[in-house]
């Protein structure tokens, strides 16, 4: 398991890590970051630092995840006394707390009404706008969530999180080209994000599974994500799938010739058959190596997600059976 750190938690932490993080709550809550001394002395003897509040924020999120609502309440109270109830971040964090505590759709609806009220007073509070989208999503209204996100992005078109979220929502609805557009916006902000490249490739792969041009685009994006990070399991996994689908298409010469219409030429000529075959071999060997190293418990490979390794192993097994 990767090392858990309250200062910079990874964007998606597995449950055991979240649990171990939230178990630090009593220790942190037992010591106050602000000094209890009277005013001029408190300036001199305070142990408060920007990091201490980052830790509080992350602790709040982990303890909500693990159901430690009491600790979450205490942390939230602390943040509120320090920064005031009207602070944008505190408002958003309180919203997260209320959402986590809401058990029925009616209670969620109430939280949602609260957000609407905040937004009527201050339409620039983007954090609350995002929380509103999250509530809409958990209420099971993806169409409304998409509308809310498009309004948000209309006003803040460089918001990475929102673009990625919108892409996910569109993909869940099967609106591939819109989802692809959103992911491209993510890439424009973060041009070297290998995970975004792989996500975009996945969307191309899923959108039209039998078209030569989209498959070669997908293959290229997977290649790029491997080029950016040459031990990226998901990149190899996708590369193998995409190249496996491409090989029969490319060997079938009629389909190559058929694809001469101008729209599909935009994406460049399709890759050469020999190259794709080589890439497929490369992906297979890399996946096998990753699975082997992970199985052997090698230290440098322990940071991988277990589910992803299992999936890779299953893919290799399936492949082996077909060849036999």
């Amino acid at each position: 398991m990767s090392h858990a750190n309250l200062l910079a938690p990874p964007s998606s932490i597995p449950p055991p890590t979240a649990l171990s993080l939230s178990q630090k709550a009593p220790l942190i809550l037992s010591s106050s970051p602000t000094s209890s001394l009277p005013w001029p002395l408190s300036l001199l003897f305070s142990r408060e630092s920007p990091e201490s509040w980052t830790i509080h924020e992350n602790l709040l999120l982990s303890s909500l995840r693990t159901g430690d609502d009491k600790a979450a309440r205490q942390i939230l109270d602390r943040l509120t006394t320090r920064f005031g109830a009207a602070n944008e971040r505190v408002v958003a964090l309180r919203g997260i707390y209320e959402e986590a505590l809401a058990t029925t759709p009616a209670e969620l609806e109430k939280v949602f009404q609260g957000y609407e009220k905040i937004l009527r007073e201050d339409p620039t509070n983007l954090a609350v706008r995002k929380r509103r989208v999250a509530v809409l999503k958990s209420l099971g209204r993806p169409a409304d969530a998409i509308t809310a996100l498009t309004v948000l992005l209309e006003h803040s078109p460089t918001d990475l999180e929102a673009w990625a979220e919108l892409g996910e929502l569109y993909a869940a609805q099967g609106l591939w080209s819109q989802a692809i557009f959103c992911l491209e916006e993510v890439l424009l902000v973060l041009p070297n994000a290998w995970s975004a490249h792989a996500q975009l490739a996945t969307l191309y792969y899923l959108s039209t599974p039998s078209s030569l041009s989209t498959l070669s685009l997908s293959l290229r994006y997977f290649c790029r994500s491997i080029e950016l990070n040459d031990s990226y399991l998901r990149g190899y996994y996708g590369l193998k799938l995409a190249s496996q689908k491409l090989i029969p298409l490319l060997s079938d010469s009629t389909s190559v010739k058929r694809n001469n219409n101008p729209e599909e030429e935009e994406a460049g000529p399709p890759p050469k058959l020999a190259t794709v075959k080589k890439l497929e071999e490369l992906a297979t060997s890399k996946l096998a190596e990753i699975v082997r190293q992970y199985g052997a418990g090698n230290k440098g490979w322990a940071g991988l997600d277990e589910a992803e390794v299992i999936a890779a192993r299953a893919l290799l097994d399936r492949d082996g059976k077909m060849e036999r």
Binding site: P157, T158, L188, A267
Partner: peptide, 21 residues
């Protein structure tokens, strides 16, 4: 302000996009 930043992003990172988009 952010629309301007978006344009600047498009200019500096145009290389990640396929030609059509």
């Amino acid at each position: 302000q952010r629309s301007l930043v978006r344009g600047i992003n498009l200019r500096t990172n145009a290389r990640v996009l396929p030609p059509a988009s």
